[in-house]
Design a protein around this nucleic acid. Structure first.
Length: 274
DNA sequence: AGGTACTCCTGAAGGC
DNA sequence: TGCCTTCAGGAGTACC
């Protein structure tokens, strides 16, 4: 599942190739993935637009186009973007094909078809609530210990659920939330308000560390994720707890436990995490 | 505010 | 071998 590191890897791999290219045509094989506007209007508006830049906001990709339009893509669970040369054939899950003016294409592929696409004027970006309300992202100045102290101290919810709330922290998903809590030595079911300032410091450092490691490893390919050229990341080889149920903790050897927190599969070491 | 349940969706995996 | 059920989960929404 693409989280901040995976989306950032895709952005970096694709940005240099699509920027300054014009979208010559587009094939919409599964119209319901397009949330706004209608598929026919989407097609009419995007045709002939030039991609000025490719940015990321949390788990959203933002293609800034000519005439102050923005193409917004959220990959959700199984969405993928590939930049491919003229000769490559789409796999059976390609749902949308962007034809560029140099003959190359951008494939939007999605096995479970939960991804979402929008096309709107830049000035209306805030209509997408997930973007308008996005909390500070790891590895930015706004995401710091003081901010975490502030949001944790009054919240009675479980820390794992707090970490996944995009309004509070932008870009964290299930894998990196589990990993950060493991690295910080904190149990996922702890109430946020129960964390000591020392634990909050540890968690702050851990979140930045796992996100940075994920990016440096080219993302985590646990089930579905592939990068902008269809390749797997390497971070799954370095995971502490996610997907390691019954396997020995890398620190103490205790079998990793899997539970359900807030409807999400949650992994932790019952010995190292307090 | 926070918990729970439900929705979207398909392929993999597990049970018998 | 084969059929059926369960699970994976980001995000939105409904409801208490």
């Amino acid at each position: 599942m693409p989280e901040l590191p995976e989306v950032e890897i895709i952005r970096r791999m694709i940005a240099g190739k699509v920027e300054k290219r014009t979208i010559r045509d587009i094939e919409i094989l599964l119209p319901r993935l397009i949330k706004w506007p209608s598929a026919s209007e989407f097609l009419a508006v995007i045709r002939g637009k030039t991609i000025n830049s490719l940015e990321r906001c949390g788990k959203y990709l933002l293609f800034f186009l000519s005439e102050q339009r923005v193409l917004v893509i959220h990959l959700r669970m199984t969405g993928r973007l590939y930049y491919v040369s003229e000769t490559m054939r789409p796999d059976s899950y390609v749902r949308i094909v962007f034809h560029l003016d140099n003959g190359d294409r951008l494939f939007y592929s999605d096995t479970r078809t939960l991804g979402t696409l929008y096309l709107l004027p830049e000035s209306e970006l805030s209509r997408i609530a997930g973007i308008a309300n996005m909390g500070p992202e790891p590895l930015t100045p706004e995401f710091n210990e003081a901010y975490l102290q502030d949001i944790f101290k009054t919240r009675t919810g479980k820390i794992k659920s707090i970490l996944l709330d995009q309004k509070l922290i932008g870009g964290l998903g299930n894998i990196y939330a589990d990993e950060a809590l493991a690295l910080a030595g904190i149990r996922p079911e702890r109430k946020a308000e129960s964390l000591s300032s020392r634990e909050i410091t540890a968690l702050y450092l851990a979140i930045n560390k796992v996100i940075e490691a994920g990016i440096n490893d080219g993302g985590t390919s646990f089930r579905d994720y592939l990068d902008g050229e269809g390749r797997k990341g390497k971070h799954q080889e370095h995971l502490y707890v996610y997907g390691r149920k019954d396997e020995p903790c890398r620190n103490c050897g205790t079998p990793i436990v899997k539970i359900n927190v807030g409807g999400r599969g949650t992994h932790f070491c019952p010995s190292c995490q307090k």
